[in-house]
Design a protein around this nucleic acid. Structure first.
Lengths: 121, 121
DNA sequence: TCAATAGTTCAATGGGAATTGAACTAAGGA
DNA sequence: TCCTTAGTTCAATTCCCATTGAACTATTGA
């Protein structure tokens, strides 16, 4: 299962790709929860998101988020640890991520954004 | 042709709908050009955007932008005058539009965002 | 070595989005 | 009144996206 996980460089991250990622409810929920844990562990595993959808569908969305440059994935054992590419995104699109996250937080109920329970690292 | 053009109220504007609008290259180009003219006339007509795509396809994208709450349309004679719903968007999603527009401006070449010639009001 | 766990990949499906051209409607000018 | 211009609506097509389950791969632990 140890495959090369392709990540775009900072400069390769494109605005439309990022916007597209954030327009999907499942992907927004993933980013939202990753951001919520940014100050603590920072990294989360696929299994933490099983509340959102099925395994294979999540793998699909994770790939999209990774390929669009929104998050970084590293393999540790059988697990995948993922975190937001906060610095790259802030550098590339200043203020964008914060604005989206703040709006998402404000609209969390309306958007039915789930706050997931996470396993401890 | 004078039909009721439904606009969402400020409160009805949803984040995913806005993000989805801005992830499409044609719609981003429309918003980008509307913003560029914000300080001057503020309002633009359908015909100003014929450089982007065909008439009927533009009508489709205009409807999406209007229904998502990104712009406002009013009929004047046979023309449709459109402008950004800047205040509503800034109120609902503070900093979002500015962040997107600033990033779009920075990446204008890469995104091939066309700066259109506009007719004078 | 074997079984269990974590996650990926594949193929198939359904549905919705974008695009196009043609037909249509409304308003303005000659 | 008639023609032209501006823009919408409709139907048809194409394509892409999200979702699903099953099969597969890799790693860990017993």
């Amino acid at each position: 299962m140890s495959r090369i996980l392709p990540h775009p460089t900072r400069e390769q991250i494109e605005l439309p790709g990022v916007m597209d990622c954030l327009s999907d409810p499942i992907r927004l929920a993933i980013v939202y929860n990753l951001a919520k844990r940014e100050k603590e562990a920072g990294e989360l595993r696929c299994g933490d998101f099983y509340g959102l959808s099925g395994k294979s569908n999540l793998a699909y969305h994770f790939a999209k988020l990774r390929e669009a440059g929104l998050m970084e994935t590293r393999a540790v054992g059988t697990a995948r640890l993922m975190k937001l590419r906060r610095e790259d995104l802030d550098n590339r699109f200043p203020g964008l991520l914060d604005a989206v996250l703040a709006s998402a937080e404000r609209d969390a109920e309306r958007l039915q954004l789930p706050v997931l329970e996470f396993t401890e690292a």
